[in-house]
Design a protein around this nucleic acid. Structure first.
Length: 114
DNA sequence: ATCCTGACGCTAT
DNA sequence: AATAGCGCCAGGA
């Protein structure tokens, strides 16, 4: 049975649109208000149910190795059009981590103007 | 209540 | 760039 914590985390993760990715830390910040407890977020995602785009959550450096199928995660992200680096990590340079805290279609797209 | 584990993050080396 | 150490949080035994 999913605890309130789990459901809250899943809700935040559902706010991440296809084609974008975020980090455990971002979700943690959206939940606690501060950048801590990212580990707990991972735990909740490990228990996620259908309808939760868990693959859109990666590590702060864009890497993803802890997932049982890091390959699976990369494949899904690539399918959605998320840019990946040559080392198989999410490229935050093109589109920064999405902020689950905000509902509007914008995120940390901190892409400097040229 | 205590100890151990784990889809994490940051700093120091 | 890669590794090690420490801190954080949640869950299970």
């Amino acid at each position: 049975m999913a605890s309130g914590f789990d459901e809250a985390v899943w809700e935040l993760v559902r706010r991440v649109p296809a084609g974008r990715a975020t980090t455990y830390g971002q979700v943690a910040e959206a939940y606690y208000g501060v950048r801590k407890g990212a580990r707990g977020i991972g735990q909740a995602l490990a228990r996620c149910s259908d309808g939760v785009p868990w693959w859109r959550v990666v590590q702060a450096d864009g890497a993803m190795k802890a997932a049982p199928g890091g390959d699976e995660q990369r494949a899904r992200l690539h399918e959605e059009g998320v840019e990946l680096t040559l080392d198989g990590r999410v490229d935050w340079d093109l589109a920064g981590p999405w902020s689950p805290a905000q509902r509007e279609p914008r995120g940390g797209a901190v892409r400097p103007p040229g």
